[in-house]
Design a protein around this nucleic acid. Structure first.
Lengths: 345, 345
DNA sequence: CTTCTCCGATGAAACGTTTCAAAGAGGTGG
DNA sequence: CCACCTCTTTGAAACGTTTCATCGGAGAAG
């Protein structure tokens, strides 16, 4: 019935012997309706299985009471944790949160954004494939609040990010402190902001400490399978040039890399130290518990949703904010103890 | 502008100097419109930043071109993998897929279902907290196609499931074959169907092989943290009664349990063998690679979405189908080699 | 008995689309 | 010059709500 023949308020009104307006009042302003009438109408609603048509309601002027979070990779627990944070805020505000998975695909992201705009959602949280996509700015300009999550922004929207350059620095500094001089970076594509920034941070630390230039093993995506592939390439490097440590753009890559190292008989951390990024829950449960750069995931989501609400409600007077959190290094077994300096070629 | 003052087709028509109907035709039946007019209208659309109002469109009669998957726990990679499968089918059909996370919370699930029905989505995929929830049957009866994923169903909807009793049997049989006689089950709450079925399967195997009755360590949720807690309880059991193996209701629990075992100095698989369920990607990357009962996750999602489409399109003539897949045991290090029979008390 | 108030219920307008019958324009053939 | 087509464009109706000005009736106050 929710299909073609779904009962409408008109049907309810007819059955209850009242006018359309009264049915509406029962639904939206029950205090204006007499007890007797309200019961009759309610009975009709139940009998017919009436379900309010949200399209009509929204058309007439109600908001959509809906928010969406467009993520980069729903299979990455980092994003579902961020989403859980956003959910808390949305719940409290009485908004429903829809998760949309762009899967690192620009087209799909574009399709989602178009649809969300057409549906007039209250706002969009997004960890974009490409934050410079003009579509995002256009969306915001036309009046849909957009908050970038985990990615910086221009003046077009608010953003909530974690300092990725600092994160890269922390990771590399840690490895350098342990005595590593030849370090690999695993991650890609390089034009993804997070990846670029983490490389920048790592290079900064290396420059400061005087290590060898970063060996970048670029990947096509940021998942476990790519980590395994990178592991093969890593192991294939001539022993004289092979780095003694790997800094991965996220924990999925690190876990894949780790798995492949074990598989190929390289010991972690003795032969290769590994640092991941995000500190997802699985990092601690890994074959060798993973040293990782932790981000305040839930907090990220919560804060982003708060900014979104502020913008959606602030209507006119609203200035975009950029909130920056600091990452923290969590040291575990995958980087082990200090290396003896002489083991470095 | 997408807010209050968003330009409508009327504005576009005025600016282009044509009628409303013509603008609509440009959008929906461009072949009916002369080249010259079409260009003028398109120019007006671009100039005004017009975005079609989906509510009005849908109200007038178009469908919503939207499908939702309500999951039990978005943080569990099992569900995001299922979702990825559903996404494939949805994409091919030109439908957008929204992910809704009920987080094992009945109220939130109910809120999502209400909203989705009001929005007149084309259909709902759901892994319900409680498949017997009358709300689900009501939803289907009122005309919104509902397909249960990973959970059985009455005659009210289609379903796509994996044989959980068989899965439990496979897991327990494996452990029994290895010589274990005292086996623990970790998982809960017990009124969740998957949990109950997996217990049933395990008990069936034990009865057949003549092991001791299953020791059930019931958990409140099915996540890593609960697995760790269960690990403490497990380790706290008097050595004489402590099981030599644990079968976990899912991989998250198994990973948490494993982590806690390692933490408390119990060796896996020597002191405790562990079997997980779902075979998520992280299972293979665990501290001790996890033996697990694999389910065809992507396939599950793809098939479910196909059934949903079939029902949504089949309109009248549609009979509900129940598709059952078989799980497969994947053996890894966490269960190790055959035990010497005499080590059992 | 009349006038005022107050409460509850009413009906029409409006939201932004899509569709469809009908009108207009321009050309062709008789 | 008229009748007839074809190709475009038009205008109105309809979708299901919410809102708001209005109306009727029942008491209360005068």
């Amino acid at each position: 019935m929710s299909g073609p023949g779904a009962p409408s308020m008109k049907d309810v009104a007819a059955r209850a012997g009242v006018s359309l307006g009264t049915v509406s009042n029962v639904l939206n302003h029950p205090e204006l309706v007499s007890e007797r009438t309200r019961r009759r109408v309610q009975a009709a609603i139940d009998a017919l299985g009436f379900v309010r048509n949200e399209s009509a309601r929204q058309l007439r002027g109600g908001g959509s009471r809906t928010v969406a979070y467009v993520v980069f990779d729903a299979a990455n627990p980092f994003f579902t944790d961020v989403a859980a944070g956003a959910q808390v805020t949305a719940d409290a505000a009485g908004l429903a949160l829809f998760l949309c998975n762009s899967g690192e695909d620009r087209e799909r992201q574009a399709a989602y954004l178009d649809l969300l705009e057409q549906q007039r959602v209250e706002g969009v949280l997004i960890t974009p494939v490409d934050p410079a996509d003009p579509r995002l700015a256009a969306l915001a300009r036309r009046g849909t609040p957009v908050v970038l999550v985990d990615r910086g922004a221009g003046d077009e929207h608010c953003s909530v990010t974690v300092d990725d350059v600092l994160g890269g620095d922390l990771a590399a500094t840690h490895l350098l402190d342990l005595g590593h001089r030849r370090i690999a970076f695993v991650g890609g594509p390089r034009d993804i902001g997070q990846v670029a920034d983490r490389i920048t941070g790592a290079e900064r630390a290396i420059a400061r400490a005087g290590g060898e230039p970063l060996t970048v093993l670029e990947t096509e995506k940021l998942n476990i399978a790519e980590g395994r592939r990178a592991g093969e390439r890593f192991a294939g490097l001539p022993a004289t040039r092979r780095p003694t440590a790997a800094f991965c753009a996220n924990d999925l890559l690190a876990l894949g890399l780790l798995q492949q190292m074990v598989h190929l008989g390289l010991r972690v951390p003795e032969d290769v130290a590994i640092v991941g990024y995000d500190d997802i829950e699985f990092a601690a449960a890994a074959a060798v518990p993973l040293t990782s750069v932790a981000q305040p995931r839930q907090r990220l989501g919560r804060t982003a949703a708060e900014l979104l609400l502020a913008e959606a409600r602030g209507l006119a007077g609203h200035t975009h904010q950029h909130i920056l959190f600091a990452p923290e290094l969590v040291v575990r077994a995958s980087t082990g103890l200090r290396r003896v300096a002489t083991t470095v070629a």
